[in-house]
């Protein structure tokens, strides 16, 4: 997994609530057997019309906004457990998603792929949306080590929560799988006791 510590970049506002993983990557694009290339079909049916022409008023097609930070409405990533949604966001270039609420499975998938989900309050999310829309070039500082995001242009700093184990994993690029394998002796002992 790629390491994450800090970035200073601009953000893209997606002012829609309850964005489900079927929108992030529709099921018909889940036929691949590897993890590559899902970014091409990220938000496919919002980005392109039925003739594959870009839909100009969708935010990812708007040249005003750019950056590896996606700011999205409440309850982002609900629905299907498909990790392809995370792969699509990461493949497209996103490294951070900010929302006022994340669905559980999405949040876990994101953390397992080095995509940092940051939860802020409803009013903070409002402020962030306003800041980007007023000034699309406004810079965000996302600091995982210090657990805060900062928008210097509006003098805003928000601390965020993250599980300390997951934080360590992201900073060092560790996978859960490595941790579990290193604890196999405990797992075998657990099985032995249960079957005794």
């Amino acid at each position: 997994m790629e390491k994450f510590t800090r970035l200073e970049q601009t953000a893209i506002p997606l002012e829609i609530e309850n964005v489900d993983t079927d929108q992030i990557i529709p099921a018909r694009f889940l036929k691949a057997t590897d993890r590559e290339g899902f970014g091409e079909n990220l938000f496919r049916d919002w980005r392109y019309d039925k003739n594959d022409k870009p839909i100009s008023d969708f935010v990812l097609n708007n040249p005003t906004y750019a950056g590896p930070i996606l700011v999205a409405g409440n309850n982002f990533g609900c629905g299907s457990s498909r990790e392809h949604a995370t792969w699509a966001l990461a493949d497209f270039g996103f490294k951070v998603v900010i929302s006022s609420f994340f669905a559980d499975i999405f949040k876990g998938n994101a953390l397992n792929n080095g995509l940092l989900p940051i939860q802020v309050s409803d009013s903070q999310l409002e402020t962030i949306f306003e800041a980007i829309i007023k000034n699309p070039n406004c810079e965000f500082i996302v600091d995982l080590v210090g657990q805060y995001i900062e928008i210097p242009s509006i003098d805003l700093q928000i601390d965020f929560e993250i599980n300390s184990y997951k934080k360590t994993c992201l900073i060092n690029g560790y996978d859960d799988i490595d941790y579990l394998i290193n604890n196999k002796h405990k797992i075998i002992e657990f099985e032995r006791k249960r079957n005794a």
Binding site: S81, H84, G108, N109, D176, I177
Partner: peptide, 20 residues
């Protein structure tokens, strides 16, 4: 409960998951 593909790999590898 449902899990993502990274977790499918974890269960393959260890028959366990890291979950809160």
């Amino acid at each position: 409960f449902g899990i993502g593909t990274s977790q499918v790999a974890q269960v393959f590898a260890s028959q366990c998951l890291l979950v809160s």
